[in-house]
């Protein structure tokens, strides 16, 4: 898939190849594994230096699991993850730990993983201590600099996590991720819990930091509005598979996959006068325990035909599509032509 992309100027920072993450379901008499939740079922993509790639999809599509599996916070069942050409899946624990400082993750609530009895400055100093990249005498100074970078004041340094609001907490989460001078930050629904006015502040902060520190983001989100604002490229996932990959403009303006189209049309628009025809998908997302055969989306797809029920469509491109734009649908040309004509 990368032939088109390799012509881009930037270097490939992260490459995910055929990644699978299955969770065993125990059951029966003796607690044997009776089935698997196929959270991520064979996805491949690349992230280039300095860009923001978004993984979007609804709950259960595997986007968060994929992010965690890249950092090996979840053990991949199969597939490879290359960071700067190094296969992360082959590293031992110690090697992984030292590599992990280049790859950081920010969660929806960063404080769920923080000791509530530590002050903010202690949290940051501890992060610096673990990777031991700053001499102990300079740690406090460096921690204060980090707080300043994310827009927090020095007098807030000695406060405890519960004294901060959601937006401030996310700033601290970002400071903690930045403390190790990472190259890649995975933002796992990092702004999803925030109020609109605060979300805008954090998105601006993320963009500013990207420029300042040449960061690369893998941005995991269900919010297409946010994704549109922050990403360079977008990957749409559904039930553990990639449905469509494209640069932002192509995806939002010339989506090929019926699922992407439905997702986009489900976003409410801000103009009551501009109410438009919306594709409302029928039914629920099927369980990833027992995903549909063939194209994963065929049970809800308005265009599904017999072949969709049996044959898995591969990610592919077609003549007039922009470089790097691929969709996994048997009929996207017909659907696109029909919509255009």
């Amino acid at each position: 898939m990368d032939s088109a992309l390799e012509t881009m100027d930037n270097k490939e920072l992260l490459k995910v190849e055929n990644l699978k993450v299955y969770f065993p379901i125990k059951g029966g008499f003796l607690g044997r594994t009776v089935n698997h939740v196929k959270a991520v079922d064979g996805i491949s993509f690349s992230v280039f230096e300095g860009e923001t790639v978004s993984l979007v999809g609804e709950s259960g599509c595997g986007k968060s699991t994929a992010g965690r599996a890249i950092l090996r916070l979840e053990q991949p069942t199969a597939g490879e993850v290359y960071y700067k050409g190094v296969n992360l899946t082959s590293l031992n624990k110690k090697e992984m730990r030292s590599t992990r400082k280049h790859l950081q993750i920010i969660f929806q609530d960063p404080f769920a993983s923080i000791n509530p009895r530590q002050t903010v400055i202690q949290v940051l100093e501890e992060a610096l201590l673990i990777q031991n990249i700053v001499p102990s005498g300079q740690r406090r100074q460096r921690a204060l600099e980090l707080l300043d970078t994310v827009g927090l004041k020095e007098h807030q340094a000695d406060r405890y996590p519960h004294e901060f609001s959601g937006g401030q907490r996310q700033r601290i989460g970002i400071a903690r991720a930045l403390s190790l001078n990472p190259n890649l930050i995975i933002c796992d629904e990092a702004v999803s819990a925030l109020d609109v006015s605060i979300r805008a502040q954090i998105l601006n902060l993320l963009k500013r930091l990207q420029k300042e520190f040449q960061l690369t983001y893998l941005f995991i989100s269900h919010d297409l509005g946010v994704v549109r604002h922050i990403s360079d490229r977008v990957i749409v996932m559904y039930l553990g598979r990639i449905m469509e990959v494209a640069d932002k403009k192509s995806l939002f303006e010339q989506a090929r996959h019926p699922y992407t189209k439905a997702l986009l049309s489900a976003i409410p628009v801000l103009r009551p006068s501009q109410k438009r025809e919306r594709i409302v998908l029928t039914g629920d997302v099927p369980s990833s325990l027992d995903p549909p055969e063939g194209c994963r989306f065929h049970t809800r797809c308005p265009y599904a035909q017999d072949i969709c029920k049996t044959e898995v469509p591969e990610l592919r491109s077609a003549g007039e599509m922009k470089e790097g734009h691929q969709a996994a649908c048997h009929f996207f040309e017909d659907i696109y032509a029909e919509a255009a004509g």
Binding site: V196, L203, G225
Partner: peptide, 17 residues
Amino acid sequence: FNSLPRHDQEKEELEAI
């Protein structure tokens, strides 16, 4: 309204409150 990412316009920075 201004702090929302918009579909119809490209903004480098959002106008946060």
